Amino acid sequence: MNIQLEEVKEKNKILIPAFTFDVKITGIYTDIKRTQLLMEQLKPIGYVHRVNEGHHAFLTVEETFRFYMDLGNCPISLEDMLQLFGLQHKRKEKVKKLTESAKNCLSFLRPFLYSKDLLIIEEPFDRLDEEARQTIVQLLNQMAAEQRNILLLSSNLEELLFITEDIYRIDHSEFHKMDFEGELTTRTSVEEEEPIIKIEKIQTKHNDKTILFNPPEIDYIESIDGTVYVNVAGTGYSCALTLQELEKRLRAYGFYRCHRSYIVNLQKVREIITWTKNSYSLKLNVQENTVVPLSRTKLSEMKELIGIS
């Protein structure tokens, strides 16, 4: 199925670039804000399943299945459906007494029964235990075999890789098709994972709160008086990691140590500014007038990395 996305801007900043792509079981790896914008845009053409969909708390699991199956004229037997969702042993339990994992698995009943050509799912594996996760993977594969198109929206790259390697990442200018080595399709242990999927979050602090960022969200990182700050959308968040540690962890995401006190996300570099013969800066495609210094000795290497002369 071919999907055409329209550009979405906020204060002259592109949040969703215009893009056309084919969907089978396809993932988009992005942040929460863009996920909400994508769901709103796609709502007219598909069934949108949001994370933490509500439940009829006082119904039993069996009553919930009967209600939605009758509503959708489901041809599958109740016993087979309970088995399919791995909830046959909880059929007499009230929904309100289920674990969070079982509730989230149960909430997938509606999109399984009612979605037709396109299903859009927000955070498909949110708070699922291993057994429930495998159940959802099997359900998604069954739906794909029935020629239903599935678009998964998540801020967790590793979770998207449970079901597909057809994954796009969004930045301020375009969608990027992510490329994975062949060995990532079969992962039997943490030790076998490649660094690109091992790093999921960069932990920071702000106003006594712990905030986790996905690497693509980060604009640049700086060290000021011995404290490291991760800069996202115009705000600096303190980080306990050193620049050396962050440089190593973020290299696979296109980050570059452009100055002894700065690491920059190369995907967000818009302009190289020459001040004097030996003085340079990088202007970023983020907040207005966001500029970071570029060491003279780093200029040639950086140009080679991003493929310019």
Rank of each mutant, 00 (worst) to 15 (best):
G72V: 05
L82P: 11
G72W: 13
S101P: 01
L106W: 11
G72T: 14
N73S: 14
D70M: 14
L106D: 05
Q83F: 04
L71S: 13
Q88G: 05
E79D: 13
K94R: 12
N104F: 01
L78I: 15
A102E: 11
E100F: 02
Q88W: 06
R91G: 04
E100Y: 02
I76E: 14
D80C: 08
Q88N: 14
L84W: 03
L78Q: 11
K94T: 05
L98M: 04
H89T: 06
T99L: 01
H89A: 03
L87V: 09
R91V: 09
C105A: 05
P75H: 09
V95K: 02
K97I: 03
P75W: 11
N104S: 01
L98D: 05
K92N: 13
K96Y: 07
C74K: 12
D80I: 10
K97N: 14
R91I: 06
H89R: 05
K103A: 04
T99P: 01
Q83L: 12
K90L: 13
E93L: 12
T99I: 04
F85Q: 11
L87M: 10
F85E: 12
K96A: 04
D70G: 14
E93I: 04
L78A: 08
K90Q: 10
L78C: 09
S101T: 06
K90P: 02
S101E: 02
L87D: 08
S77Q: 07
H89I: 00
K96N: 01
H89G: 01
L82I: 11
Q83V: 05
L106Y: 09
S101L: 03
K103M: 02
L78G: 07
L78M: 14
F85H: 09
R91N: 07
P75M: 08
